[in-house]
C-alpha cells in the first residue's frame, strides 16, 4: 500500500475553511408519542403471533377433515381433546406409581436432563478448551471424538446399563454422552479462533493461565460455546425420550410407550405436543442465556 500524501493531517485542516449553509425544512407534525409506540408494539406482536396461529388453525382443520372419515387410523383433533381431557386439564394429579399427571413425567425427564446436561457442559467446555489450546491434545483426541460422536445415543444404552446396572444413571449417562460432542467441538473451534490480538494483549499484561482462561478465553469463545450448548440441549431432549422408552419408570418417554401399549393414541398425541413445547422452551432458555452472556462479544 502506498499511502497518498494528501491524506496527512496537516493538509486536512485547510478543507475546513469553506462555510456551509443549509436550509432547515420543518418536519410534519408527529402523532402523539405514547399512542404511536403502543400501536407499534401491538403491530410487532401481531406480526409474530398471527401467521403461526393461522397455519396451526389450517393444519387442525385439514387433520380434522382427513381423520373424520371412517377407517382413519388416527383420531381427529376433536376426539383427541375429548379422549385425553383428563390429561390436558389435570397435569398435576398423582395417583401413585406410574399413574401421574404429565407434569410429573416431564419433571422426571427434565431432572435427568439437568444432571446429564450439566455434567456434559462442564466436561465438554473443559475438554474443548484442552483440544482448542493444545496442538498435541487435538492431534490425540480429535480423531477419537470424531468417531465417537457418530455413535447414535441409544447405542450407548445397553453398555451403560451393563456398567451401572440401573436405569436412572444409565439414562443420565446417555444424555451426557449425547450432549458432550457438540459442546467439545464448538468450544475447541471457539478457542482456536481467539484472535491473535487478544493473545497479544494477554501476553503484554502477563495474565497467568487462570486469568487468561477466565478473562480472555471464555468470553472470546462464548458465542461458539453457546452454539455447542444449544445443539447439546436439543440432542439431549431427543435422546431422553428414546432412552426412557427402554428404561421405563416415570418419565415422558415411558409415558408415550405405555400409552402405545394400551392403545391410547390420543394420549400419545397430547404427550407429543408437550414434548415439542418443552424442547422449544429448553432451546429458548439456552438461547436467552447465550444472548445475555455474549452481549458485546459477537457485536465486534
Amino acid at each position: 500500500m502506498n499511502m497518498p500524501l494528501a491524506k496527512s493531517g496537516i493538509t486536512a485542516s485547510i478543507a475546513l475553511a469553506s462555510p456551509a449553509t443549509a436550509k432547515v425544512l420543518p418536519l410534519p407534525p408527529k402523532p402523539s408519542v405514547p399512542f404511536a409506540r403502543i400501536r407499534a408494539t401491538l403491530g410487532k406482536i401481531a406480526a409474530s403471533v398471527v401467521p403461526p396461529a393461522v397455519v396451526v388453525a389450517l393444519f387442525l382443520v385439514i387433520w380434522e377433515v382427513a381423520c373424520r372419515k371412517a377407517g382413519a387410523t388416527l383420531p381427529p383433533p376433536s376426539r383427541v381433546v375429548n379422549d385425553a381431557w383428563e390429561l390436558i386439564a389435570h397435569p398435576f394429579y398423582d395417583h401413585g406409581g406410574l399413574d401421574k399427571g404429565l407434569f410429573w413425567h416431564l419433571l422426571a425427564s427434565l431432572q435427568r436432563i439437568a444432571m446429564g446436561y450439566t455434567l456434559a457442559a462442564i466436561a465438554g467446555v473443559a475438554l474443548g478448551t484442552l483440544v482448542g489450546q493444545s496442538v498435541w491434545a487435538m492431534r490425540g483426541l480429535d480423531p477419537i471424538f470424531q468417531v465417537l460422536r457418530t455413535v447414535p445415543p441409544l447405542a450407548w444404552l445397553p453398555l451403560s446399563l451393563a456398567a451401572f446396572r440401573d436405569g436412572q444413571p444409565s439414562a443420565i449417562f446417555v444424555i451426557f454422552i449425547t450432549a458432550i460432542w457438540p459442546i467439545i467441538i464448538n468450544t475447541a473451534v471457539g478457542i482456536r479462533n481467539i484472535p491473535q490480538d487478544y493473545r497479544n494483549v494477554a501476553a503484554v499484561l502477563r495474565l497467568n493461565p487462570l486469568e487468561f482462561f477466565v478473562k480472555i478465553m471464555v468470553p472470546a469463545a462464548a458465542p461458539y460455546i453457546f452454539t455447542g450448548l444449544r445443539i447439546g440441549i436439543g440432542l439431549s431432549w431427543l435422546a431422553i425420550v428414546a432412552a426412557e422408552m427402554l428404561i421405563g419408570g416415570v418419565g415422558i418417554g415411558f409415558f408415550i410407550w405405555d400409552a402405545w401399549n394400551s392403545s391410547h393414541i390420543s394420549e400419545i398425541i397430547v404427550a407429543l405436543v408437550y414434548v415439542g413445547l418443552v424442547g422449544f422452551i429448553l432451546d429458548r432458555i439456552v438461547a436467552g442465556v447465550s444472548s445475555i452472556v455474549t452481549r458485546g462479544t459477537s457485536a465486534n
Binding site: D197, Y198, P219, A220
Partner: peptide, 20 residues
C-alpha cells in the same frame, strides 16, 4: 525476552476486548 507491561503496545487495530 518476553512481553510485559513495561513495553505497552498500542496495536494498529486497537485490540480492545469487546466484552468489556
Amino acid at each position: 525476552n518476553e512481553p510485559g507491561p513495561d513495553r505497552a503496545v498500542v496495536f494498529q487495530n486497537h485490540s480492545l476486548l469487546p466484552w468489556l
